[in-house]
Amino acid sequence: MSESAPVLALEGVHTHIGQYHILHGVDLTVPRGQVTMLLGRNGAGKTTTLRTIMGLWPARDGRITFAGQPIGGAGITLSTPDIARRGIAYVPENMGIFGDLSVKENLLLAARAARTADDIDTARLEWIFSLFPALRKFWLYPAGKLSGGQKQMLSVARAIVEPRELLLIDEPSKGLAPAIVQNLIGALRELKRTQTTVLLVEQNFAMAKALGDTVAVMDDGRVVHRGAMAELVEDVALQHRLLGLSLAAHG
């Protein structure tokens, strides 16, 4: 696969949930080694797009390719675990942590190659602790008793405890205090420096501005704008047309 080829591509993807037709022919490319922001008003189809990529809601039509290989679309029946094993990690909006398990146990479950915590790559674990120091402090603490920000840190840490080629992250800053959001921005910037590819759904436009290389804007189940994040940041009229607000007003 060419280094210049997108790591992920959606072509004409349609998704139905029950009787509802949610995605109406989504076309989206995610360049390798970049952070692609997926923006749009509530209900535009952003979360459905991430869940469709992971096979949680199957695409009825169209095609999804990852690293040049089909993983979803018409006639493709890969399961969500199969898709994950190809090198995609998903951080859902609800974080999906196991509240009755400790921080250590949550990370061990995500480290598929490890049978005990001692099997987790020490250097990688220390790197995660450098990003999220609270996880070292609460290593043996039940995850359900962590603060909202600490739970989000754990959710992201689980996604990166093993190297992944692509991270899908759904609204990581939702409901978090500004100081925690800044910590999260710093951690995701560090991930960018490792050339990890990220597709990030986010309503916090300060985070979008700080992290995004490219951007796709969704409306009514379709991608209606694609381009450089910097260009959207500079074009207030375009922000209003696509999102109904200006990024400047949100930090």
Rank of each mutant, 00 (worst) to 15 (best):
residue 130 S to F: 03
residue 131 L to R: 10
residue 131 L to V: 00
residue 133 P to Y: 05
residue 134 A to S: 15
residue 134 A to I: 14
residue 136 R to M: 10
residue 137 K to M: 14
residue 139 W to N: 08
residue 141 Y to E: 11
residue 142 P to C: 08
residue 143 A to S: 15
residue 144 G to E: 13
residue 146 L to A: 07
residue 146 L to E: 01
residue 146 L to Q: 08
residue 147 S to E: 00
residue 148 G to D: 03
residue 149 G to K: 00
residue 151 K to R: 06
residue 151 K to T: 00
residue 151 K to Q: 01
residue 151 K to G: 00
residue 152 Q to N: 07
residue 152 Q to G: 01
residue 152 Q to C: 01
residue 153 M to N: 03
residue 154 L to Y: 07
residue 155 S to C: 05
residue 156 V to T: 03
residue 157 A to H: 02
residue 157 A to I: 05
residue 158 R to S: 01
residue 158 R to W: 11
residue 160 I to L: 08
residue 162 E to I: 03
residue 165 E to N: 10
residue 165 E to D: 13
residue 168 L to M: 03
residue 168 L to E: 01
residue 169 I to M: 04
residue 170 D to E: 04
residue 171 E to P: 05
residue 171 E to I: 09
residue 173 S to R: 10
residue 173 S to F: 14
residue 180 I to R: 00
residue 182 Q to N: 13
residue 183 N to S: 14
residue 183 N to K: 11
residue 184 L to R: 10
residue 184 L to H: 10
residue 187 A to H: 04
residue 188 L to Q: 03
residue 189 R to H: 15
residue 190 E to N: 06
residue 190 E to Q: 15
residue 191 L to I: 09
residue 191 L to W: 13
residue 192 K to D: 08
residue 193 R to I: 11
residue 193 R to N: 14
residue 193 R to D: 14
residue 194 T to M: 12
residue 194 T to S: 12
residue 195 Q to M: 15
residue 196 T to K: 02
residue 196 T to I: 07
residue 197 T to D: 02
residue 202 E to G: 12
residue 203 Q to T: 04
residue 203 Q to C: 04
residue 203 Q to G: 06
residue 204 N to V: 14
residue 204 N to M: 08
residue 205 F to C: 10
residue 205 F to E: 12
residue 206 A to M: 15
residue 207 M to R: 12
residue 207 M to V: 15
residue 208 A to F: 09
residue 208 A to W: 09
residue 208 A to K: 00
residue 209 K to C: 06
residue 211 L to N: 10
residue 211 L to G: 07
residue 214 T to K: 10
residue 216 A to C: 14
residue 216 A to Y: 14
residue 217 V to A: 06
residue 217 V to R: 11
residue 217 V to P: 08
residue 218 M to N: 01
residue 218 M to Y: 05
residue 219 D to P: 06
residue 220 D to Q: 09
residue 220 D to N: 11
residue 221 G to Y: 15
residue 221 G to H: 14
residue 222 R to A: 07
residue 222 R to S: 07
residue 222 R to W: 06
residue 222 R to I: 03
residue 223 V to L: 09
residue 223 V to M: 04
residue 224 V to R: 02
residue 224 V to G: 06
residue 225 H to F: 15
residue 225 H to P: 06
residue 226 R to V: 11
residue 229 M to F: 06
residue 231 E to P: 03
residue 231 E to Y: 09
residue 232 L to S: 00
